[in-house]
């Protein structure tokens, strides 16, 4: 009996005891719209302490504080842009997972486009190179090449 039931129970217990990653504290919102905005903002804002986690996923002190701050600002009727501006003023562009297009982030935005263009140019250049190379043999060269091939064959026989 235990052969079947015990693993089943074990699985159930483990799945119950594993804490969920995100919801560290639960906030009550006046409307679902506010909750949606809170969730969206804490997902797009980056934890300043951790290198690659957003506010929603991070367990660090600063993320907890900033979630509370977002909650306060959402409740106070501030717009998403106002909240983003508040965060950027304190923690710089680092806090945005979607950085704005400006001089310091120029490389970030343009590098992929430039790399694709370079890639395409390289392919075109190499193809052209191949075609001209095969065409470029003149009669004299071809005769010489044939002679070499013939000689090689005789040697190997």
């Amino acid at each position: 009996m235990c052969k079947w039931l015990c693993p089943l129970w074990l699985t159930l217990l483990i799945s119950l005891s594993t804490p969920s990653v995100a919801a560290i504290e639960t906030y009550q919102f006046a409307s679902p719209q506010l909750a949606d905005r809170f969730n969206a903002l804490t997902e797009e804002l980056r934890c300043p302490k951790c290198q690659n986690q957003n506010l929603a996923d991070s367990d660090s002190i600063i993320s907890k504080d900033l979630r509370r701050q977002v909650k306060l600002m959402v409740d106070a009727g501030q717009s998403d842009d106002q909240i983003r501006a508040f965060m950027v003023q304190r923690y710089g562009d680092f806090i945005l997972y979607d950085p704005p297009f400006k001089t310091q982030t120029l490389v970030l935005w343009l590098a992929p486009v430039v790399l694709v263009i370079i890639g395409v140019m390289v392919v075109i250049f190499m193809r052209r190179g191949k075609v001209t190379a095969s065409v470029a043999l003149n009669d004299q060269e071809r005769a010489k090449l044939d002679a070499l091939i013939k000689q090689q064959k005789e040697n190997s026989e």
Binding site: P48, K49, I61, I62, D65, L66, Y91
Partner: peptide
Amino acid sequence: GQLGIELGVIG
């Protein structure tokens, strides 16, 4: 950490 947030403290 309320003053911390005002100052932009990370840790």
